[in-house]
Amino acid sequence: MSIDSMFVHKMWDDHELAKMVDGGVPFPMLSDAGGKVGKLFGVYNEAAGVENRGRFIIDPDGVVQGYEVLTPPVGRNVLESIRQVQAFQLVRKTKGAEATPSGWRPGKLTLKPGPDLVGNVWKEWKTSMAFD
């Protein structure tokens, strides 16, 4: 979503993005002329008249589980967004019985919060697991 019109979105997709992605962008490219939606989400930049680079993860109940906001020159890490969605999906599937520690990826160790784990995380989770 940006403040550009849907017509400009079409031109960008036709003339540039379709050369990077086969068939063009598969998802909706939304128009927020005037920044009303951006203001709702707190990412509209009044001084510049554009949206900051905000990314929101919204779960199936419509609840915001996480967000990230960057200034224009630095792009997002798509794999990190996907990793976060996978983590939130796991937490949701286990109804919160499992939590994903720092550095978690699908297949890696999860933690099961409870009385026995208090003060004992060090026995199960090592700092190196945040970096491997």
Binding site: M11, E51, N52, R53, G54, I57, G62, P72, Q89
Partner: peptide, 23 residues
């Protein structure tokens, strides 16, 4: 597009400064 039409699905909503702005 209405956001609430996507209830029941996971949504990634991304804002960006503008078309043709490089990054």
């Amino acid at each position: 597009v209405k956001l609430s039409d996507y209830l029941g699905k996971w949504v990634l909503l991304c804002f960006y400064p503008g078309d043709f702005t490089f990054v």
